[in-house]
């Protein structure tokens, strides 16, 4: 009974995971920093509850794409840092490739559809 969570009105399934993976592979972060980063880079385009990151993070931990370790926050507090694993990196590469292909296809169709 996998239901689509109404919180992520994603562009496509897996988009949130992809963004998380990409962000974390740039730099391991804790939850709050990740949420801030996602809002910043999307320039408020993605209006999501910060909390809804967590189910996604847990899914990714379970899939073995992420791992946690203790680290320090910007305020020097001990926090749990999410880090991309080797498997996560591979998954990201694969997904990016297929997403690029999909976008290329969609762009092409959109360009030609009106003619």
């Amino acid at each position: 009974m996998k239901k689509k969570r109404p919180e992520y009105r994603d562009l496509f399934p897996g988009a949130l995971e992809l963004m998380i993976l990409k962000s974390l592979s740039w730099r391991p972060m804790h939850g709050y920093a990740l949420a801030q980063r996602l809002t910043d880079i999307s320039e408020d385009y993605l209006q999501i509850e910060e909390g809804s990151l967590y189910p996604a993070l847990q899914r990714m931990l379970k899939a073995g794409w992420l791992e946690t370790e203790m680290g320090l926050s910007a305020r020097n507090r001990p926090v749990r840092i999410f880090k991309v694993t080797e498997a996560g990196r591979k998954h990201l590469e694969q997904e990016l490739a297929s997403v690029e292909k999909m976008f290329a296809g969609v762009t092409r169709v959109l360009a030609l559809a009106g003619q």
Binding site: H30, Y32, E50, G51, Y54, Q58, T68, S73, R80
Partner: peptide, 14 residues
């Protein structure tokens, strides 16, 4: 426990 901790940390930072 870790999950609860993460969420607590998140809120504290915010």
């Amino acid at each position: 426990d870790e999950l609860s901790e993460s969420i607590r940390e998140h809120l504290e930072e915010k």
